[in-house]
Amino acid sequence: PPLLPLQMLWLLFLSLPCLGASPHPRPLPIVPPAPAPERELVGIVGGHSAPQGKWPWQVSLRVYLYRWASWVHICGGSLVHPQWVLTAAHYWGSLGVVPLTKRAYRIHAGNVYLYGGRTLLNVSRVIVHPNYITAFLGFDLALLKLATPVRMSSRTRPVTLPLQSLDFSLEDECWLTGWGRGFYFEPLSPPYRLQQVQIPLEEEGACEQGYRRFLHTRANGKVIPEDMLCAGTQGRGPCMGDSGGPLVCKKKGTWVQVGVVSWGIGCSMYELPAVFTNVQSHVDWIRQQLRRRR
C-alpha cells in the first residue's frame, strides 16, 4: 500500500470530501443576496470573488437537508457538455448509494451566488469511474447526466477538455474556483459568492517528495497516483466544499480543464500543494461516456 495505516488515517482526517462543506447555520435567504466586494477574501483559501460569467462551466452539487428544509451545497463540478457535469467520485464511491439517491441531488449553474434564486437542475444518472476505490488510489472522477440540457448563454457554457497531445507547464496560468471554505475552520459566509484563486502547477517529483516528507513514509509505491497532478501553494488552494471543482489553465487563449479537486492536507495550511485528478489522463474515458450515453 502507498501509505502506512496511521498515516492514511491522518490523510483521511484532513482530506477534502464533498460533504466536508458544512451547511450554513441558518435557513437560506429567500431573496438574492447583495453583491460582494470584488476582492472580499472569503471562500477558497487565498481567493477572491469571481465576476459573473467569468467561469460559466462552474456548478454546485446540492443535496436536500431536512434540518434546514433547503438544497445545500456539498461540492463543486464543471459542465463538460450541455447535459453532463464532471466532478469527483469520492462522495458516491465511498457511500455506495448511487442507484438510490441520484434523484436526491440537484445542480446549480449559471450564477456566482449559490442561493440566488435560479431553478435547480435534476440529475438523471451518475457514473462513477469503474476503477475508483478511494481518492488516494486515483480514478477520482464521476460524471452526472442532467435530466435536461442546460441552455447555453454567457453564464452557462461547457469548459474545454484537454487534448492528449497538449503539454502543460509550471509557467501556465491556472485558476481554481469554488464555494468551499476560506480556511479549515471558516465556512463560506454570505452572500455565498463563487471564489477564484490563481495557483501554480507543481512538478510531479517535488510534490511526491513533499508528501513523503510530511507523512514520514518509506512505504513502497507512490503517494501521488499516476493519474493525479498537484497544484497550489501554502495559503492558496482548495478546502472543504471545493471537491469536484475544476482547475483550469489557459492554453492559446482558451481555458482548458486540467484537474478535478480530489484531496489534500489541511486546506493549504502547510507547504504542500493540493492533489487533483488529472483530466488529461481520463479524457478518453470521459468522451467515451458522453458519446455512449447521449
Rank of each mutant, 00 (worst) to 15 (best):
G117M: 03
E171N: 11
V128P: 11
M269Y: 05
W57T: 01
Q289I: 04
V112R: 15
L247T: 09
L121T: 07
R155M: 14
G253N: 05
W255H: 11
P158V: 06
V283S: 11
M8R: 14
S268D: 13
Q280I: 06
K54R: 14
L11M: 15
Y192L: 05
Q164Y: 06
Q7C: 00
G253E: 02
F13D: 13
R193S: 14
A36F: 08
Q257W: 02
K102T: 12
D167Q: 15
V98D: 07
L188V: 00
T119G: 04
S281N: 09
Y211K: 08
L4A: 13
L141G: 03
L95D: 03
G180C: 12
L16N: 08
R118H: 11
P149R: 03
A36Y: 05
L28E: 11
G138M: 03
F13A: 15
Y115H: 11
H24R: 08
P200N: 10
L166R: 11
P5Q: 06
V42H: 05
R181V: 01
D140I: 03
W285M: 01
G253Q: 09
E226K: 10
G232S: 12
A104M: 14
Q164N: 09
A69V: 12
L144Y: 09
H216L: 13
R236G: 04
L272M: 07
I199H: 01
R218F: 03
L144A: 06
R103D: 01
L6D: 12
V258Q: 08
G138T: 05
V260S: 01
R193F: 02
P23S: 06
G76I: 08
R67W: 13
G93D: 00
P238L: 08
V256L: 00
N220G: 11
R151M: 10
T177R: 07
F214E: 12
K102C: 08
S169A: 07
L4H: 10
V31W: 06
S49G: 07
P29A: 13
G210E: 05
A88K: 00
M228F: 03
H108I: 05
G264S: 07
F214G: 04
L121Q: 08
P17D: 02
S169N: 06
W175H: 15
T156C: 15
Q209W: 09
C249D: 02
T156Q: 12
A21V: 04
K252G: 03
H73P: 09
W68Y: 09
H48P: 04
R118I: 11
Q288G: 06
V150Q: 02
Q280Y: 07
L272Y: 06
V123F: 05
G244V: 10
A274K: 03
Y270Q: 11
K145I: 11
Q289M: 02
R291N: 09
F214Y: 15
S153A: 04
V275K: 02
G180L: 11
T177S: 15
V45G: 07
G266L: 13
L121I: 13
Q280G: 05
T177V: 15
T277P: 00
V126Y: 13
D140R: 08
H129E: 02
F168G: 03
V279R: 02
P162S: 10
S281K: 13
L86A: 04
G266V: 04
I286Q: 06
L120C: 05
A206C: 07
T156W: 07
R292H: 10
G245W: 01
Q58P: 07
G253T: 10
L166D: 13
A34V: 10
L176V: 12
V159D: 00
Y66T: 12
V59Y: 07
D227F: 04
